[in-house]
Structures are given as C-alpha cells and as structure tokens.
Amino acid sequence: MSASRLLTPVVKRKKLADVEWNVIEDFCKGCSFCIEFCPVDALEESDRLNAKGVHPPKLKSEDACIGCGLCETLCPDFAIYLEKKEGKGDKE
C-alpha cells in the first residue's frame, strides 16, 4: 500500500453496478495501474505467475468491486473486463 493511500481516508462508496470482474491473466504485463488507481482499493497482486512472468491482479474480496469500470479503461493491455450480472442489473 502506497503512502498516498494511507493518507486518504477510506470512504465507503456505494455500488454503481452489479458486475462480475474478470481478468485475462495472460494479457497482463504487470503495470499495476489497476491496483494503484482503483478508487476503492479493491485489487491486489495475485500469487500466480502468468505466461509473461508477472503477477496479474485479483479482487481482494468478492464484493469489494463497486463496478465503476476504471480499471477496465485504464488497463493498457485489454486484460480486465466487467460483465453485468444478468437479472440483477443496476439497483436504486
């Protein structure tokens, strides 16, 4: 966890969309943009090594993701994508 992370207060954000967070592990080149810039700090490096020899990201816990989609757009390697969960969709 970086120093800037420790200084920012943890704000509980409400879920924007109910999504399934996916990663194409072999596409990841390990830039760690997704882990650093996630607004709710929901991602971390996994223990697994992919074909490129880097640790792809994973969700810290199942319900940590709020579905904002920033990691998807910020990933330079098209490795992350979100899928809307069928049936539930956006609440509120």
Binding site: K29, G30, C31, F33, C75, P76, D77, F78, Y81, E83
Partner: peptide, 26 residues
C-alpha cells in the same frame, strides 16, 4: 473475445506489442 470491446478489435493480433505500462494501449 468475451471482452465487450473485442468486436472492434482484431483478436488474433492480441496481446499487443506495446511495452508494459505504455500509454498507447490506453
């Protein structure tokens, strides 16, 4: 191919050649 934007991309050419952290991918 399950990626929502894959329909606009030539999947057979991926992963792309750009370096780790290169802005061109973004």
């Amino acid at each position: 191919e399950k990626h929502p934007l894959a329909k606009y991309l030539r999947a057979e050419r991926f992963p792309h050649i750009w370096c780790e952290g290169c802005g061109d991918g973004i």
